[in-house]
Design a protein around this nucleic acid. Structure first.
Lengths: 138, 138
DNA sequence: TATTTAATGCAATTAAGTTGCATAAATTAT
DNA sequence: ATAATTTATGCAACTTAATTGCATTAAATA
């Protein structure tokens, strides 16, 4: 299992470190999106700057993506296999529970509509966020 | 004109104050979404806490809505007339320019698809954010 | 106009995001 | 396997956003 994680890091030209392995495992274990604060709570043994840079390196290499939300703090989710630094799968569908606040990826292939933009505008990606109540809170 | 603004505040049971009138006018003048920082830059005569609370009172009363984004700071846009504290129009379509960073509401009636959620989940609203290049930056 | 109620400004706190730099660890070349 | 090189980490420090309490001021109501 650990070997898988190491391979992922290698594939993205990232050095194999304890922090990166632990953080990646955490993302794999948690189906939900995670924030900087979540990591700080989970890994008190790592400096918060290290966690911050771990998130950024994962972001740059296409392992994670940022999930837009209104809370004012960034949340991150694992990218599908199709994501890479060169080619990001820009069409993400996420669900945010208005009660417990959890954000998760609805990574089943979801139909995202073509939005008609004003003249001169160019679309690069589409984010769709459904909010409501998750199964636990409904 | 000023009378319109006052009426809007009255309709939402908000007291008429200079700050609220100025902030609302600013939102009406700017077609783009605005952040706390934008207000602080524009209105140095008001304390940042006052601006913060103005945004919140507009949010609570349904005059503004928060626009989800990945930057980690909240942005706000005017709600359509159909919004009220009781009944929010939850289906918003926004455009974010990846170059200049501006966020605007695409308030034309846009078709938002039905997303199929996992069992037990209840949808309350849908946010759709298209990112790319605006006419100025394309 | 007096009373009541809510908004404002100020001080202060928490948290997120960010950078520079010395040290330690991981990769690579020998 | 070890030395050289490159990158990651931890620490200190700083910036900005979000937030709360409280005294003061202003708006709505009686």
């Amino acid at each position: 299992m650990q070997e898988n994680l190491k391979q992922i890091l290698k594939n993205h030209s990232l050095r194999i470190t304890d922090c990166r392995l632990d953080v990646m495992q955490y993302f794999l274990d948690e189906k939900n999106a995670l924030s900087q604060g979540d990591l700080e709570n989970r890994f008190t043994e790592y400096d918060r700057v290290t966690l911050y840079r771990t998130l950024n390196s994962f972001l740059d290499s296409g392992i994670l993506h940022k999930i837009p939300n209104e809370t004012g703090s960034a949340t991150y989710g694992l990218c599908h296999d199709t994501c890479s630094p060169e080619h990001h799968d820009h069409n993400h569908v996420h669900f945010k529970c208005n009660t417990c606040g959890q954000i998760e990826c609805l990574d089943e292939k979801q139909p995202i509509p073509n939005i008609s933009l004003p003249k001169g505008y160019e679309a690069e990606g589409v984010n769709l966020i459904v909010d409501g109540k998750c199964a636990n809170c409904a």
